[in-house]
């Protein structure tokens, strides 16, 4: 689950806050879409939730233990991300020098899972995203849709409490986008994980359980 309360952020050179007093909750197993115009602060909000940018005020509680990522130091934020958050990006961000299986295993290694366990879990996830035979392949030989499937597997392999997806279908053609979205939602629901999906696509937003709209005046539901 994710609980955001009284969150405020202002860029150092900006004349007014990007957002202030933001608050919302995403329950366990709930998938929420975050929409809004360009420049309104969606990515900054996502970065704050991931602990990649620091909020000026407020709290962001993640996972069953409700750890406040705003209050943590850099190392603890990294540890919380490794344990409790999965990421899916528009540009896939698959490490080109590791094989598909190794890419998926990265979060398990960051969580410190023993070597014996991660091979089995990686294999299982590859099967769940329809890439059972892709483990030893190099990312350069995969299509965009396949790369995003790998990214979904990597986001879920360590059973995170929260998945943050930033325009997960933005780089894909409509048919592949539909397949990838369906897969993402299905797997997230299957794991009973919370998810926040940032998107410009009305279709993607409609597929989620709830839609939050970020505006210069605040968050609308």
């Amino acid at each position: 689950m994710l609980h955001v309360a009284d969150l405020a952020k202002q860029h150092s050179r900006a004349s007014r806050p990007l957002f202030s007093a933001l608050g919302f909750t995403i329950a366990a197993g709930e998938i929420v879409a975050l929409v809004g115009e360009s420049g309104v602060g969606k990515s900054t909000l996502l970065n704050c939730i991931a602990g990649l940018e620091t909020a000026d005020r407020g709290s962001i509680a993640i996972g069953p233990q409700a750890l406040d990522i705003v209050a943590l130091d850099e190392t603890a934020r990294a540890a919380l991300r490794a344990r409790s958050i999965g990421f899916v990006f528009q540009a896939f961000h698959i490490l080109p020098t590791l094989t598909v299986a190794q890419n998926i295993a990265v979060p398990l290694l960051l969580c410190g899972l023993p070597a014996g366990e991660h091979a089995a879990r990686t294999r299982a996830l590859l099967e769940r995203v329809g890439l059972a035979s892709f483990g030893p392949r190099w990312p350069a030989s995969l299509s965009g849709g396949e790369l995003q499937r790998v990214a979904i597997a990597r986001a879920l392999v360590h059973h995170p409490a929260l998945v943050l997806a930033d325009e997960p279908t933005g780089n894909l053609d409509p048919r592949t986008a539909g397949e990838v979205l369906a897969l993402l939602l299905e797997r997230v629901r299957e794991q009973h994980t919370s998810a926040l999906v940032v998107t410009h696509s009305q279709h993607v937003a409609q597929c989620c359980d709830r839609i939050l709209t970020l505006t210069p005046d605040g968050l609308l539901e």
């Binding site: 190392t75 540890a79 958050i85 990421f87 490490l95 960051l110």
Partner: peptide, 15 residues
């Protein structure tokens, strides 16, 4: 740098 940034986002600590 993008790869290291990704690893950082996924939870590789600064140290």
């Amino acid at each position: 740098s993008t790869q290291f940034a990704l690893l950082g986002v996924l939870g590789l600590s600064p140290r």
